[in-house]
């Protein structure tokens, strides 16, 4: 499975929880700390992010940067010589 990760700009996040709803892997949650503005910010709570960017798309504050493993390069298959 393709592995991904997100970085949430914690001082920009307002804790609206829309990314938590949008995540199909349920890998986001709210932090136990608060940021400078007094909001609990979104953090990765599980290691199963696939980098699908759904959270970044719905984020109203453009706080999320998404990373993903590059797609594996397909190895050329062996061409069988016709008999």
């Amino acid at each position: 499975m393709i592995h991904g990760s997100v970085i949430v700009a914690k001082e920009v996040c307002k804790g609206c929880e829309l990314c938590i709803q949008a995540c199909p892997q349920e890998s986001l949650g709210l932090s136990n700390q608060i940021n400078h503005n007094g909001y609990r910010f979104a953090v990765l709570i599980k290691d199963n992010c696939t980098g699908c960017i759904n959270c970044a798309l719905v984020c109203p504050d453009a706080a999320i940067t998404v990373y993903r493993q590059p797609k594996p390069v397909k190895q050329p298959t062996k061409v069988l010589e016709s008999a």
Binding site: Q33, G51, A62
Partner: peptide
């Protein structure tokens, strides 16, 4: 809570 994963070997697929 810090970053869970290292960003090594990953490419940015979405940013501001």
């Amino acid at each position: 809570m810090g970053q869970v994963l290292t960003m090594e070997g990953m490419e940015i697929v979405y940013e501001k």
